Amino acid sequence: MRKSYLKLFGLACMLTIVSCSLDDDRVNFQYTPLQITGASLPDTFELGRVYTVDVNILRPDDCTLLDQFDVRRSFTDTTQIRTISAVGIVLDKDECAALNDSLQDAFQFEVLYTKPYIFRFYTSDDSEGEPEFLEIEVPVKE
């Protein structure tokens, strides 16, 4: 009786392993930076307040979707620098229709320092592959 259970268990395990396929119909994707075409910031910040930063993003085709913002912090002696890029997901499809569609999204930003903030929004790469940025400086009033 025990041998029968072991044989059935072994058969069930083999069927489970054989039925799993890595070649399924899941959609694959890759991440890509998207072009930011504009941003809306106030003329000045107040220390301690939270602001909504509206961002315009170019969606090049219908296979590209906006996923999130990547915000990197750095600073100098006199300013706080935030480098922002829009991260897109590009679906691996055979055909993608060109759109050049403008999307609008936003993120929340809390003012924690009294030094001015410089926002560097990624716009594209130049002809030599170097990133280009739209820069906006916002002073802070206490």
Rank of each mutant, 00 (worst) to 15 (best):
R2I: 14
K3P: 00
K3L: 07
K3M: 04
S4Y: 07
L6A: 12
L6D: 09
G10K: 04
L11E: 04
L11S: 07
A12Q: 00
C13G: 10
C13E: 08
T16N: 01
I17W: 07
S19T: 10
C20R: 04
C20W: 08
S21G: 04
V27N: 11
V27M: 15
Y31I: 01
Y31N: 03
P33V: 02
Q35V: 04
Q35D: 06
G38A: 07
G38V: 02
G38Y: 05
G38K: 02
A39Q: 06
S40H: 08
L41G: 10
D43N: 05
D43P: 00
D43A: 06
D43V: 02
T44P: 00
F45I: 00
F45D: 01
E46Y: 02
G48V: 02
Y51T: 09
T52M: 13
D54Q: 14
D54W: 14
V55T: 03
I57C: 00
R59S: 01
R59G: 00
P60N: 00
D61H: 04
C63H: 12
D67Q: 12
Q68M: 10
F69C: 05
F69R: 02
F69P: 05
R72M: 14
D77A: 11
T78G: 08
T78F: 09
Q80C: 12
R82M: 13
R82S: 14
R82L: 11
T83P: 15
V90K: 08
L91N: 09
E95C: 07
E95T: 12
C96S: 12
A97I: 14
A97T: 15
A98T: 10
L99P: 03
L99W: 05
N100Y: 13
N100E: 11
L103T: 05
D105H: 06
D105T: 11
D105K: 02
A106F: 15
A106Y: 15
F109V: 05
F109Q: 05
E110T: 15
T114K: 15
P116L: 03
P116T: 06
I118C: 04
T123Y: 02
S124E: 14
D125R: 10
D125E: 13
S127V: 14
S127F: 11
E128H: 09
P131L: 10
E132M: 09
E132S: 07
F133D: 05
F133P: 11
E137T: 13
P139R: 15
V140L: 15
V140C: 11
K141L: 01
